[in-house]
């Protein structure tokens, strides 16, 4: 009976499947599975964008800069919970669109105050309370009002 030399059989296998090569095989497997996921993900994203084109929601605060041209600060009044992610997001979008004007949250002492409330009625109630004068309203219910204290002045605020 011929003698089987186990070392002669297994040595080349150990040489091929050393730590380095095993790692590269695993890495190749990860790259392969990742690539499949990547291509599927890109296709689904393209489909999503074909159906729903991207809209930056901060756009609802655009078009106010021509009125607010010299303002450094304006008030931003909201009855929403700003610790809530979605409401914080809305505030951040307003701040981003209106930069470099700084939005002072719930401070109604500034010359201009932006009202972004849960309903138009809530905003109008607050506007009446502080005797502000609404000067611009858009289709998203965002109201820009002027503080009556500044009605006859053009002073720059701090």
């Amino acid at each position: 009976m011929p003698k089987i030399n186990a070392e002669r059989i297994f040595k080349p296998l150990f040489l091929i499947f050393n730590g380095r090569n095993c790692f590269l095989i695993l890495a190749f497997f990860i790259i392969f599975t990742n690539s499949q996921k990547l291509s599927k993900d890109i296709i689904s994203r393209k489909k999503i964008r074909e159906k729903n084109p991207y809209i930056f929601h901060g756009i609802k605060f655009s078009g106010l800069k021509e009125i607010l041209h010299n303002a450094e600060y304006i008030g931003y009044y909201t009855d929403k919970d700003i610790d809530n992610t979605l409401d914080a997001l809305q505030f951040a979008q307003a701040q981003f669109i209106l930069a470099p004007i700084i939005l002072d949250l719930n401070n109604t002492e500034h010359e201009f105050i932006l009202f972004d409330c849960s309903s138009e009625a809530v905003a109008m109630k607050r506007i009446r309370e502080i005797k502000a004068i609404p000067i611009r309203k858009n289709q998203f219910g965002i109201i820009l009002a002027k503080n009556p204290k500044y009605m006859f002045t053009n002073q720059k605020q701090e």
Partner: peptide
């Protein structure tokens, strides 16, 4: 393709980084 899905970036991006750049 990923970048143009949200051309203004993630919300932390425009709240912090892009806001600061614009400012």
């Amino acid at each position: 393709q990923y970048a143009k899905f949200y051309p203004h970036g993630g919300w932390d991006a425009w709240q912090v980084w892009n806001f600061k750049a614009k400012f």
